[in-house]
Design a protein around this nucleic acid. Structure first.
Lengths: 348, 348
DNA sequence: GTTAGCACTCGTGTGTTTCGAGTGCTAAAT
DNA sequence: ATTTAGCACTCGAAACACACGAGTGCTAAC
């Protein structure tokens, strides 16, 4: 439906606008190497493209800027997946994830986020490894006063969750120790996501046999297992986006920065992405403060199992090609790294 | 050295500027109830005050604005500590810290930060309870793979630190258990700040007697005890400051937001404050992005022992009276709350 | 010592003009 | 039947002029 020439012009305009953030005129398109038509011809096509909703005019005597529809078309049809072209330098930057030795999962993730924002100069958002896809390694109850204790859950990925709980006074220390022992015997290697259910069925019956105050203990336990538990969000380069000319408006900035703090919304946004790579342009994000932004996410995995999401937030006028390349590379790198880090565990 | 009338005028100008963020002219000062002089008289005094460095002119035909020196004088001499005047409503807001039941120390702190920023409409920064003033309650080593384990330190305040460590392969599981037992016997109730030293002297000799590979274990332990460990920083209302008219400049905002991420700098800034209440105006903060800001901090304590710092970051044109009142009240409230929360522990 | 009076300053707001990049249309060229 | 040259037209941005008025500093009178 779009002619060869129209495609060429559309791409030229998008490329130009991505680079300079200025409306693009027919003359400057015609000056490009690969364009062999006069400004007048280009103007005709531009008028058509505008009618089709791909281009917009800020005002009648300015050039055209791409619409959201244009960006969507661009990433869907115009971006050849082959020519991603990361420089040697960039690849080296990413690969240092491997060379630096982190044995804290969190640090690996944070470092990935840092690399991402440094490389792209946009804001990076990374969803940490899914807590619920890991399983219980050990559960601990450390008393810190006569009536309180810290409950600690360690997962097989080395993640630690803690929760202060109050201990019903009827319970004796010896009972408590028995309780923890039973829990560990019964619940080790149980995926966290099944923990709650398992406790309230299977474990309940076992406890009943051995302990007097098992109901109180179950109650305490249910306090501990937080069903709203979710992956941590890592940011880097929150202020990078402020350097973009389209975000020079303080009120808009304020809204966006507020949104960063609304972790539950960001979390939902990232969780809803399909695995693989997702590109959301402008209003496709369904969050009003980001309606001039594009968010690209890629998922990373351990042993092929989806674990988390790395993402970039930038203006709709984003360097798609580059960002896609970087995200693709880093998500694969991260998957490899994490798989290495935890494969021994699985063989164990 | 300043006449009665000059003081009155200075205070009037500061009050007015704090309210409206606009240069104050002689006419508007003369219109105040408590001022009974003509604009001309006031102009003379204003000229004197300017010469003394208390007032500045944005340009020759504008009114005057207070200098940093003026704010300093204001808080030092003009602010009567008595007339703090929190409204009943505000006191209720703060006191809900007591009524809501948090048994997580972190949540209490975060909630305090939220109250602070809500009440003041500035940005609140709170330094969490000093980890180093708490002592070891229990140390744990949870293996998560053949050669790695998670070391977990629980303090008497319920704080949990974790660190993934690699286990030297020469070490057996039984040895490891003995190791942890010795550590707990020897180190319980030792203040974290003495931990490292104690391990490398006293504990070392004990370990030598009971364990073959004690040197490897000590090495592993030293990996765990992070000497750079420090209090967490809690923010709330990071974007409140953007609503102030003096921070409508994107580049300034960017610098400030970047500074928020530089936790080590913020940490140092807050650590360097004396106990009690400290007010740093403009360049007194020694951080260039905050040279138009005032930071007021107050420390909170448990049983009189300094624990952390609550603070407010706002423009130099800050509502000093109000903020001081709120900070004073909340820091005392927080101290009471935390003392209650942990006093039983001490009697234990 | 205080104030009224007045000339002066200077930023802000407004209206005018100019400039030029860019457009759309028409007619000529290919 | 396209494509292009030519041209009138649009409209924002920048430059300029001008008036306004809030505010000042100085001087002289109270």
């Amino acid at each position: 439906m779009l002619s060869e020439r129209q495609l060429l012009i559309l791409e030229a305009i998008i490329d130009d606008y991505i680079r300079f953030a200025e409306p693009v005129g027919s003359r400057s398109v015609s000056k490009r190497r690969d364009v062999k038509f006069s400004p007048a011809t280009i103007r005709n096509d531009m008028a058509d493209l505008e009618e089709l909703g791909f281009l917009e005019k800020p005002h009648s005597s300015a050039g055209r800027i791409p619409s959201q529809k244009a960006y969507r078309y661009y990433v869907d049809h115009l971006l050849a997946p082959k020519d991603v072209g990361l420089s040697r330098h960039e690849i080296a930057d990413i690969d240092q994830l491997f060379t630096k030795k982190f044995n804290e999962l969190e640090k690996v993730i944070q470092h990935s986020a840092n690399i991402l924002s440094d490389l792209t100069r946009y804001t990076s958002i990374v969803l940490g490894p899914a807590v619920f896809s890991s399983s219980l390694q050990q559960i601990q109850l450390v008393p810190i006063s006569p009536d309180t204790a810290v409950a600690i859950i360690v997962t097989d990925t080395g993640h630690v969750e803690k929760q202060t709980v109050s201990i019903p006074e009827v319970i004796q220390t010896t009972e408590l120790e028995k309780f923890v022992k039973i829990l560990n015997d019964r619940l080790r290697h149980v995926p966290l996501i099944q923990l709650q259910e398992k406790i309230n069925t299977e474990v309940r019956y076992v406890l009943r046999e051995y302990l007097d105050h098992y109901e109180e203990m179950i109650g305490m336990l249910n306090e501990t297992i937080n069903p709203e538990l979710h992956e941590q969000i890592y940011y880097s380069g929150k202020t990078n986006i402020l350097a973009q000319p389209e975000f020079r408006d303080v009120d808009r900035i304020r809204e966006m920065m507020n949104m960063f703090e609304e972790e539950s919304l960001i979390y939902r946004l990232f969780r809803s992405q399909n695995h693989g790579m997702t590109i959301r342009i402008g209003e496709e994000n369904d969050l009003e403060p980001f309606d001039q932004c594009t968010i690209i996410t890629a998922s990373y995995s351990i042993d092929g199992k989806h674990m988390g999401t790395v993402g970039i937030l930038g203006p709709t006028r984003m360097e798609y090609r580059r960002v896609i390349g970087i995200l693709d590379y880093i998500s694969k790198d991260l998957s490899k790294l994490l798989t290495n880090l935890y494969q021994r565990k699985n063989e164990w």
